[in-house]
Amino acid sequence: MKSMTRRNFLTVAGAVASTAALAGCGGEKAVETTDDTTADDTAEETDDSGLGLVTEGSITFAVSPDYPPFENLEDGEYVGLDMDLGRAIAEQLGLECVYTNLDFDGIVPAIAAGGQADAGLSGISITPDREKQVNFSEPYYIDNQAVAVPSSSTDVTEDNAAEVLNTAEMTIAVQSGSTGADFAAENFPNAEQLAFPLFTDAFAAVAAGQADAVCGNLAVVEQMLAGAYTDLHVVLTSATGEEYAIAVNKDNPELLNAINDAITTLKDDGTIDELISANMG
């Protein structure tokens, strides 16, 4: 109720306040400017003051840009499927799109706590644990798990991966708080797990020989292997069918509904498929 009062107040002071806030936010926050005309067109459709946003007039997504092809920083630009999706959703809602940088394992807690970002958009799979903390939007992508090892490693092959990976001699690098970490813990409980805040560092650890294998979402593993880590190869995949969705604070059903509407629209008009094929090429 308190936040409602504040929101009502802000509706009045909205325009001024948001400009000031945007001008003042530097550092990690990146303001993505959407096409002005579209923003104006759609502004009337959505009453953004009802969405309880961190910064009025903008939708702030928490993102961990270490996860190509979903989110990544290239020359300081946020690129990837999620980033394009975020911009498309913001456009649908008539809001400015802002990305704020957080370590992956901090995103769900940050959304649950509120105040830092409106929504988590960072290749977040829906899991029962996370559903206890936040609400999830409609899923927009389905991904699986994969394990990659250095090509030079002869111990682990596609034939024996399931058994060999589950031995005490194995060290498996994962991203802290990811479904890959859960998958490795459940399926390779005997192996040692090395958790990194950044998924890219998990790959670096394998390349550096700090870990024997890396476990995480298939699309990302494939992307990393196609890019910087060509000397790794995938030895095991599992069709976990994880659904990526946007995480929203439980106390903000209005925003969840708005995002869901946007996703539905973007699915129906083929935008999401386009973005997927554009980013997964």
Binding site: D103, D105, G106, V108, P109, A112, A113, D129, K132, Q133, V134, A173, S176, G177, L194, A195, F196, P197, L198, D201, A202, A205, Q210, A211
Partner: peptide, 23 residues
């Protein structure tokens, strides 16, 4: 050292924070 996968104080704390959403 949490950044490079050493399971020290902060790293343990953040794994629980990640799974519970409480600080």
């Amino acid at each position: 050292l949490a950044a490079v996968g050493i399971m020290e104080l902060v790293m343990y704390a953040r794994t629980i924070v990640a799974s519970t959403g409480s600080i």
